[in-house]
Amino acid sequence: MAGALTASAGTGATALDDRFKGVMQGSHAEMTVARSEELAKKNAPTPPELRLAEYQRAPYCRDAPGMWVMGNADGTCPDGANLARTSVQCEDGDTLVMPMWMRTRATPTSAWEPWDDIDTGGCGIDLLPVMTEADFRRLPLPAPALTLQPDRGWVLINIETIVSTDPAPVTLRTDLLGYGVTVQATPTRWEYDFGDSHTLTTDSPGHPYPHHDTFHRYQQPGTYAITLTAQWTGRYQIDGSPIWRDINGTATTTTTSPPFTAEERTSHLVAGPCTTTPTPPDC
């Protein structure tokens, strides 16, 4: 649920009886708000005269004899009964969901059993679908941008090869159980595989020279490619709800640079400037 559930007795009630305490502590109610709502929706298409179960959301009320009973669907209590002032601490902008009650009968011609509470209520957001880690990973998250410096097809061994990426979040639209959903995904961690058995895992997107903080020095000449894996976290908002919810899990995307060579260069004296044309043979 979106918030903690607490309760205080209504006007004229001096203490919570054992049954109401049990309900508030979850020992009586056995279902989540979302699960009981799902059962009610599945039952709704059945004609009333054929139903073996009925569901209704209504508050807890304390009647004159001091028993907790089912209130009215409009949130009020019967004459002579006091409302149990249940306080669900929902996030700003969210709405309160009253407890769900259910009654059953053995056959369409049998008498109904008494109403019984099957969830304690909660917040409106509890009725909405949850975006799972698997849902998040199915989204078309972009491959991370990979910038190399220098980027000329070759680098020098024992000199920093600087790498960096773009940490900007992306916004995506998707559908979840018939609801439109806006997802904000943010890359928060990166792993570079430099192709020579060395890796770098960092929370920094990196910076260009001379403020670089993500780099690698190749020790041996050769042909290499750098693979960058970005780890994404996300949050989502369901259409019609003001609440943003964090996604419990992460997703990853990967990109690989074109191959390049790591070369060893040495300096030596030349007879004249190497800028002349044609280039002198000793340059």
Rank of each mutant, 00 (worst) to 15 (best):
Y60V: 04
T223H: 05
T174Y: 04
V170N: 00
T161V: 03
S267N: 15
S36K: 03
Q149W: 11
Y218S: 03
D151G: 05
V97H: 02
P140C: 08
T104R: 06
L52N: 06
Q237H: 14
P208D: 13
G195L: 02
T32N: 08
P221V: 05
P205E: 06
G206S: 07
I162S: 00
D94M: 01
V33I: 14
L141M: 12
P140R: 07
D74L: 07
P108W: 08
Y179Q: 15
I162R: 00
P142L: 06
Q56I: 15
A4M: 10
G240D: 06
S27W: 13
L128T: 03
T201M: 09
V69Q: 09
R85E: 10
A168T: 13
G26P: 13
G3C: 08
T11K: 12
D135Y: 01
W154R: 13
T165S: 09
W68M: 11
S36T: 08
A58G: 08
D135N: 12
T95Q: 07
E30N: 13
L16I: 14
T120F: 07
M70W: 02
R235A: 08
T256Y: 05
T107A: 06
W232S: 01
L156P: 00
P167E: 14
T76L: 09
L16Y: 05
P259L: 11
N72E: 15
E264W: 15
T182E: 12
T202C: 04
D74N: 10
I247V: 11
